[in-house]
Design a protein around this nucleic acid. Structure first.
Lengths: 159, 159
DNA sequence: CTCATATTGTAGCCAAGACTACATTTTGAC
DNA sequence: GTCAAAATGTAGTCTTGGCTACAATATGAG
């Protein structure tokens, strides 16, 4: 399921390995493939974003808090944190909380920016704050750089 | 992973089973939970949409074509089709192609409408057609009814 | 009609992400 | 300083969604 570590927001083009095997055809397959690969990073992004939030707000990010905030069992959170560590995004020592590596911090920053942008655009389109926040959580992982730029432009254009 | 069959577009409120177990807290957990559950339907939606396309365009939807269009091995496609059948969205007899049930057709219709709406909004925001199509493929699965309405409204408002 | 080829189906493997159940630390009240 | 409770960690299980490899069935060229 994880054939590509990062995508889109992380700046890595990727999408090549998967498509290399199955030439598929034209554009559609490539498009779907990209969509799929984005899903693997989506979880990482959510966790990294939340950890950054917790570190900033509470000063520490504990597995239990992470689990509660994500609506997931603590065991699940801990496993996810292990994956984050494997991906070089976080560090964690037993009973000592989770921290972000530089790479993790950079990702968190990009994710946060993107999240804000998506929410702002949704709101500008007339979506309520609550729905905007909720939907952005899912949408943001699939917004390409190109679209992100268009969003920024759009927001700027309307004062 | 599949605790809820459908969501959002299908009109089923849901989101209750997951959240029932873990009271979690306030809104964020619920939000993330909803995002997660949407992912299970995303694949179903993609397949159903594609099958509808093939049936309409080619008159039949064969597993190999489906696999090629999705950039996936035929075995994977066949397994997915089995899940579709289990979910009551499709029917398929060996060597006889795939068809949609009424439920599947209804889903396909909703998905198609939503897809078009998302693409149109992206384009209206200045995203190129190609990027709009590509990003919509991922985004569309996370757009709530509410946001969908706002999108329609927005498009109508600008003539 | 036969047989090679293409399509379809099956089986078995893997990692991710989720869970429950149980074990181990830490921490805080006393 | 002890010890119960909370937090953490570990183990084992499940489904999804992916793959490869192999088996079975259709199809079409000859």
């Amino acid at each position: 399921m994880v054939r590509e570590e990062q995508d889109r927001i992380s700046g890595v083009p990727s999408g090549a390995k998967l498509m290399g095997k199955l030439p598929a055809e034209g554009t559609q397959a490539r498009r779907f493939g990209k969509t799929r690969s984005a899903q693997s990073s989506a979880l990482h992004e959510d966790y990294v974003e939340l950890i950054a939030d917790l570190l900033e707000g509470e000063g520490e990010a504990r597995p239990t808090d992470i689990a509660r905030r994500l609506g997931v069992s603590h065991a699940t959170a801990i496993k996810a944190i292990a994956r984050l560590k494997r991906a070089g995004l976080a560090t964690a020592r037993p009973y000592r909380g989770v921290f972000l590596t530089q790479k993790g911090q950079a990702l968190a920053e990009r994710v946060r920016l993107r999240h804000r942008l998506v929410v702002d655009v949704l709101r500008a389109l007339g979506v309520s704050s609550e729905a905007a926040e909720a939907d952005a959580e899912g949408i943001e992982h699939y917004v390409s750089e190109h679209t992100l730029k268009a969003f920024a432009q759009f927001l700027k254009s309307r004062q």
